[in-house]
Design a protein around this nucleic acid. Sequence first.
RNA 1: UCUUCAGUAGCUCAGUCGGUUAGAGCAUCUGACUGUUAAUCAGAGGGUCGUAGGUUCAAGUCCUACCUGAAGAGCCA
Length: 468
Amino acid sequence: MEKMQREKIVEVLTRVDYGASVLVKGWVRSRRGNKTVQFIVLNDGSCMSGIQIVADLNVFQEEALKKVTTGACIAVQGSLVASPGKGQQVELNASNIEVLGEADPMTYPLQKKGHSLEYLREIAHLRPRTNTFGAIFRMRHHMSMAIHQFFHERGFFYFHTPIITASDCEGAGQMFQVTTLNLYDLKKDESGSIDYSNDFYGRQASLTVSGQLEGELGAMALGSIYTFGPTFRAENSNTPRHLSEFWMIEPEVAFNEIEENMQLAEDFIKYCIRWALEHCTEDLNFLSSMYDKELLERLRFVVDNSFVRLTYTEGVSILEAAVANGHTFEYPVYWGADLASEHERYLVEKHFKKPVILTDYPKEIKSFYMKQNDDGKTVRAMDVLFPKIGEIIGGSQREESLEKLERRAAEMGVPTKDIWWYLETRKFGTAPHSGFGLGFERLMLFVTGMSNIRDVIPFPRTPRNAEF
RNA sequence: UCUUCAGUAGCUCAGUCGGUUAGAGCAUCUGACUGUUAAUCAGAGGGUCGUAGGUUCAAGUCCUACCUGAAGAGCCA
């Protein structure tokens, strides 16, 4: 084969310079045909569509096409022609086909017919080659770009918080320990505690459960920052909405109060969804047709309507009214109770039928760092609740008073000695500030219409599952 | 972690009240077909019924434990 520049199928499909000689490389999705002509659908991942390769058997020996099987990788040189068949604008009349990598049809796990998502999870190393996961992972990229673009446009700085941390007071869940100690020969002191003085960091260390505390340090210097990185929770959560390793976006803004924080959250989510509608049309249409017919409608609805904002207290009143009218919940509703998912779902899906931002929760059920309201009972927390997926964002205005912060930490039994540096932001030049955290995969669930979080990250990490 | 459901061919599933040799579609292979669109048509091969015990004359089917998966719940993003 003469030396040519390989072209991406996404580009070739838009071309109209018929007769041009083109080289494409990709993986065979299917081959069909008869004694005269064979059709090969070739996909290189650059877009959902494959290009149809036409192999005239006057040009090719049937034997030469034997290795062109589903899953094989081939390079095809041919001339671009307008397709006489239905279903595609252009196709490639092959003049040369080279098999770069064979795929034994007897053992190749992907067939051209559909597979269940559960089965594809077991072959996560190959599922990116399917239409569904090609679409999802292309969208994952686009959503990442949207996030950076949104914050960059608004003057936020991408701030890198550490993945390994020695503080355990976020209260966000169980942590994975990081150690180089010999687990077969752990040294313990008289009280039976493990001696970490010889560990890598000279102290106990873990994978981060949130970059928020360090993010606040950035905000108190750079003004507006965001983080976007992996986060780890060692919770034994087995649900379609939890991963033990997931990606989180955490903006933090100096001088923002809770209202501005809410506006930022709403603008941010809408920006991302609008970006998906504009940049991922082909993939969205596929996912919509295959998995969720109302997907596009739901995305447009969220973009076009403002989120409902109400306080926890108002939310509880609505739920209590529902109970009075005969609606039954499994868990009781009363002021002070943490809302169960059935309660959140009722507000979002039954009562308001649109995204809801709940604010001003009882201080007892929220973290120590949230700004205390003057009523002495509530804090300036905010949760953004979405249809289908529940809580997509959790955030708050932060307590800027050192005294109040320390008192609350003590009341809640939070060990603050490891976060003296965090407290010093309140000691030196403290300022009102706010931020929130958004689970990237939860956003992905919403924009793709997928229902299991294990299907929107290439290699999901969940309890008892770290394959690939 | 709790509750419920499921595990039978490469994949998706059927298998009746416990009863003879384990069924289908798709995939794969072989053949047919002059442009197909998840092509079509004909034929063939393909099984440790999740694992280990137990009940029974007899277990894919009933019981127990465990493993794996899914849904819901809790925890949370």
